[in-house]
């Protein structure tokens, strides 16, 4: 039945999507729309379809007696089976302090790393443009406490550990002799990594005059 093949493919694609989302927490939807990410999901989908094909060729029924349910049992096993097989390591080789895994998972690690690099390169451009646009009318001295506090208030569930790390970066910026422009861009960039582009833009929009540079005295 064609629907079972579609579901098996979707199963694999969703697992691939889950991995991409876990790597790009700030704007997962943007990351998923990049060509390398789509390629990675397609690769996982094809692996699930291949697993389903193998199961059908060998006629494995997974012990299910009802013929109507056998197909769906095969779909579930193909989805999980492909996931487990692709992420399995047969043995580890130690090279100095480094542990190198040997097996299909090694291949997947390399694919995922190249996807990550490609996605990151593509998104670096988007992020740079977005940060300079959002932060163009923001004064670092006025915003460095108010803007993060407001954005975290909007999010409500940011882990304390992340907030502490952010606090250290903020202190580094506040005490650094860099120009106000670079400090403002770094503040925006660091906040965007944590809360995402939309929350940052909302925070800047809502705080508006509170964080704008003062007009030059006439």
């Amino acid at each position: 039945m064609w629907l079972e093949w579609v579901v098996a493919g979707l199963f694999g694609a969703l697992i691939g999507a889950g991995e991409i989302v876990s790597q790009f927490r700030d704007e997962p939807d943007d990351a998923l729309r990049t060509v390398p990410a789509l390629g990675y999901m397609l690769f996982n989908a094809l692996a699930s379809l291949f697993a389903l094909a193998v199961i059908r060729v060998f006629g494995w029924t997974m012990g299910v007696q009802d013929p109507a349910m056998t197909g769906w049992a095969q779909v579930v096993v193909a989805g999980f089976g492909a996931m487990a097989l692709l992420r399995a390591s047969i043995f580890n080789v130690r090279n100095g302090d480094q542990v190198i895994t040997i097996g299909p998972s090694r291949f997947l690690e390399i694919v995922l790393a190249s996807v990550k690099d490609a996605v990151d390169r593509k998104r670096a451009e988007q992020r740079g443009v977005a940060v300079s646009e959002i932060m163009k009318n923001v004064d670092f001295e006025k915003a460095w406490m108010a803007l993060p506090a407001y954005c975290f208030g909007l999010l409500q569930n940011l882990p304390q550990e992340e907030q502490d790390k952010f606090g250290k970066k903020l202190a580094l910026l506040a005490n650094s002799p860099m120009s106000a422009r670079v400090k403002t861009l770094l503040l925006g960039l660091t906040l965007m990594n944590l809360v995402g582009e939309k929350v940052l833009a909302t925070g800047v929009k809502n705080l508006d005059e509170e964080i704008r540079p003062s007009p030059p005295a006439s």
């Binding site: 606090g167 202190a171 650094s176 002799p177 860099m178």
Partner: peptide, 24 residues
């Protein structure tokens, strides 16, 4: 609350300054 603890942890980090010069 968490909000207050964030603000106080930032204030602490800003006034700590230890290691920040070399960091940049």
């Amino acid at each position: 609350d968490d909000f207050g603890s964030f603000l106080s942890s930032v204030q602490r980090a800003v006034h700590q300054q230890k290691g920040q010069g070399a960091s940049m």
